[in-house]
Amino acid sequence: MIGVELALMLRRRRVWMCWALLCALPALVAVLVSATGLAPPPGRGAAFLSAVTTNGQIFPAAALALVLPVFLPITVAVVAGDTVAGEASTGMLRYLLVRPVGRLRMLFAKLVSVAAFVLLAVAFVTVTSYVVGIAAFGFGGTTTSGGTAAVTGFGAVPSLSGPVIEPVDLLTRTLLTVGYLGLCMLTLGAIGIFFSTLTDSPLAAALGVLAVVVTSASLQPLEAAGAVEQFLPTAHWLAWIDLFRDPILYTAVDRGALVQLGWILVAFGAAWANLATKDVTS
């Protein structure tokens, strides 16, 4: 069933559209910034964006920061909201269940396919923005002082806390980031799967996920919500930035990962409890 799910996902045009759009936004920003040379000053705009003009290799981080708040959650909401509700609305849910595909097995396969979608999404953004970043801004190690830019090969990247990050180190940090953001998005995916078992409308489920994101994001800065702030699904989304400090600060990432895992378990459990007891009348 997992194989079938993955095959079906890869044959959906919507999925490829999502990936394409996710990769296009950072590329657009890269083109604008490199054409105008106007990077936002440090501390404004998306994280890392101020640094990219000096070294294109940091652009994947900037790209992830760009798509993280809105774009990525929307695509995850659309794909996860479609999982069960989409089958229900075409009528395939009943035919899968009588094939038979056990309800738990089906949900698990859906979760795996959503995980594959988010991981590939984050990975695609990273890879394309690396290429775009280098094409637009070079490898770093360039001296812009004298006006004569000379590329000196793979330059080191400045970390957020000053010391430079070597290329191999950069690779591991990027992989960690991809994994962490994948986990954050999988939280949304699991919530989306749960909503998707509640309704026969993929759109309603997707909007439900976005409602969760918006609610969580608006509670976050609220002092009155301080007690639960730590446990909001969006609370730790930015913790990955610590992966670009030197040395890496793991505390926030670790706690974030735990909270995300907790959400995934809860949402998946709720989805299973609901689907297992549900009358499939679609």
Partner: peptide, 17 residues
């Protein structure tokens, strides 16, 4: 169910395939 073939309230298919 592996030994039952079923049609329930009309056929269904993945429309894109």
């Amino acid at each position: 169910l592996p030994r039952v073939g079923a049609l329930v309230e009309g056929p269904a298919a993945w429309p894109g395939l």
